[in-house]
Nucleic acid binder design. Structure first.
Lengths: 231, 231
DNA sequence: TCCATTTAATGATCTATATCATTGTTTCTT
DNA sequence: AAGAAACAATGATATAGATCATTAAATGGA
């Protein structure tokens, strides 16, 4: 396989020349990750651009009392903590934690900075990527402020189905294995409330699944429950 | 006054050459704004980069039922809705509404795109700016998910004091005139809850002020109440 | 495959904040 | 400066979701 294969999965770099892609690939470092492992912690200096090659990673913030919010679940191909002002060399605003086994690829910020300086198009891609993430984050903040627990859980399930759903004969299987606590952390709820809402969804035939294997039975109904970005 | 004076206040463009700054200034359009006026609405096509020259503008999202969240209050010099994927020419993810009289300057996205393509440093500045905004937005989401009403109000007051506070003999005056509803929209609360919290803060001598004129009396105490980004 | 550990389900109760309602105060308009 | 309109203060009540507690089920390691 060509040495550039690691980064070829990242749409962000599709605009680059073969030589720049090889330059990035040459400096790309692969890191195998284990369940629960922190790839970095809040406050650590952000020296690297990371992206997920295999598995799932969650971006987490914690409160002094030990509660946490999960800001995003990353899938293979996702860049993460670009938002950490990695280019400016600041510190990570949150933790990145492996949700299972997988592989993360990292590239030093100086290498990235170099490539960006030579490729205005790559810079514009990153700006667009950040715009998208900012938009998502603001939608998230809006959901916390205005939507009810049930609506937030519905939104999360719809989003997961769209991003990691595998279409099967009996429904859409969510490939990320999530505990109720994981979902609760995404929705800003307790695991008990999340559990009760999921039980209701199961009773209403919106979802099915035992344990961490979730199956979406009625996506349209969940989409109706989840308020849309633009009314 | 030189034609470039409009954009000179924007740190983002400090890296540009005199000719690029003049290029931007030539295409900058000034718009006087009135209280309550929408500069753009959610869903409108994002054809322009905007920044505040004078006055205050709030970025707002609304729910179908009519409730709203204020994502950010912008001060003179702030760029806004760069996050709207203005470069990509997408649509605005939220509304921008004038909080009083003022002046907004707008530059067409094509002019900006052109300048960015020629100035990698400007692109990196915009990336850093977006990173900062993303960070803020994620902190905001975290606050909604994990912090209590009182802590959120305290955070908002601290932030306003830092960004728009005028030091006076008896305290720090917040220059933005805000109703309790405005604060409630920022904190994701009702105006009644906000009112009660502010009454408590007044009783405890943390703040003072009649009507929309807020005065911070005890900033350190408010900072203690507002949980910090990194514990 | 069994046992330990983690996770889920669900009831009972509590509480922060929303909602509804009223009166008083400030701010704007002319 | 007066009147209208917007805003603030605050009580009473309702409720979504948290917290505490228990039992059952799923998962993972030896």
């Amino acid at each position: 396989m060509a040495p550039s294969s690691n980064i070829d999965s990242l749409a962000l770099f599709a605009c680059l020349s073969e030589s720049d892609r090889q330059e990035l690939a040459k400096h790309a470092i692969e890191i195998p990750i284990q369940k629960g492992q922190f790839i970095f912690r809040e406050g650590d200096p952000a020296e690297w651009f990371h992206f997920v090659k295999q598995g799932n990673v969650k971006c987490v913030k914690t409160s002094p009392e030990g509660r946490e919010v999960t800001l995003k679940i990353l899938m293979p191909g996702d860049l993460f903590c670009c938002e950490a002002s990695a280019l400016a060399g600041e510190s990570h605003p949150g933790c990145a934690q492996a949700m299972g086994e997988g592989i993360v690829v990292k590239i030093h910020r100086k290498v990235m900075l170099d490539v960006i300086q030579r490729n205005p198009e790559a810079a514009v891609n990153i700006i667009n990527y950040l715009s998208l993430r900012l938009r998502e984050s603001q939608d998230n903040a809006k959901a916390f402020a205005l939507h009810r627990a049930e609506q937030r859980i519905a939104s999360i399930l719809v989003n997961l189905a769209q991003r990691s759903g595998i279409h099967e004969t009996n429904g859409i299987r969510i490939s990320v294995r999530l505990t109720h606590q994981d979902l609760a952390d995404m929705a800003g709820l307790t695991k008990e409330t999340t559990s009760r809402i999921l039980s209701r969804f199961k009773k209403d035939q919106l979802i099915a699944g035992h344990g961490k294997q979730l199956l979406i039975l009625n996506l349209p109904r969940l989409q109706e429950m989840a308020p849309h970005a633009i009314p």
